[in-house]
Amino acid sequence: MVKLRPSELIAIVLLGLTVLVTLFGPFYFDNVTRAEKEKEHVFYVTARQWVFEPAEFVVKKGEKVTFIVSSADVVHGFMVTGYNIVAVINPGEFVKITFTADRAGVFEIRCSVYCGEPLLNSGAGHWLMKGVLKVVEL
């Protein structure tokens, strides 16, 4: 058993703390932040070529809804037809959209900024990038 000097003990503790904070700290902090937001009916949406993740949202009529939309690659758009919501989503930016779901029904969400397609004139890619918002009556 090697004799441990006080400086070595302190170093071991510091290293342990460093590892804990840097490797696990971020995940813990993020979980805490998101848990708080979930209480207010907040949806995190990631737009990437060529899907929204997640793409389906169900809320009750009259609720205050917040979308926090970001893009993982290029510039996309976030448009909710029927609620007159149009936003441009730049990569890395988190756009916060808050509104009250006062009308019931099924509303289409789609990408309002052309974001490419696998082959020109294929009709796929950007043109198929959609989601859906369901507002249900109580």
Partner: peptide, 23 residues
Amino acid sequence: TPNLAIFFILMIAGFYGLPVGNK
């Protein structure tokens, strides 16, 4: 050790963070 901490954070950011290079 401070630089080791920074490099760990950079690794986490690279593996689990946004795939947009300049962000």
